[in-house]
Amino acid sequence: MELVLAGLVGFLVACGAYLMMSGQLIRFLFGLVLLSNAANLAIFAAGRLTYATPPFVVSGQIAPAAGAANALPQALILTAIVIGFGLLAFALALAFRAWQSLGTTEMDAMRACEPVDFAAGKTKEKTLDPSKSYERNRLEAAE
């Protein structure tokens, strides 16, 4: 059974990675969803898969009966799902706002925070001539 789950985790990660590398913001988010499910499944499998009773304490007892499932991985996954849910809600809202203000969801076209001339290393300082005043240089660069 672990093997099946491991294969499933691998498949989910592969799909997620494929979607994330597509360069589309929405697909990137879908990829993240797959990836987060893969991580949760990995925790689930890490807690060992056994046929067991639910980890409830029967009234009057102080510990769950023998053969109860390990409750900790479930608690971890629950926490992770809750957090992942919050993060994803935020990410979706953000994607929507980004599309509104940038007009695109293409990753390559989203360059508002890092305009291309920065990335290309076109530092305007190189054209400066130290013998002239700064303003002079600026005027010449503008021409």
Binding site: L32, S36, A98, M110
Partner: peptide
Amino acid sequence: MDAAVKYVGLNLIATLAFLA
């Protein structure tokens, strides 16, 4: 908004790696 998309996207990957 643009910066946040990059920040959020890349940090979420790191987060999932942490969880895994």
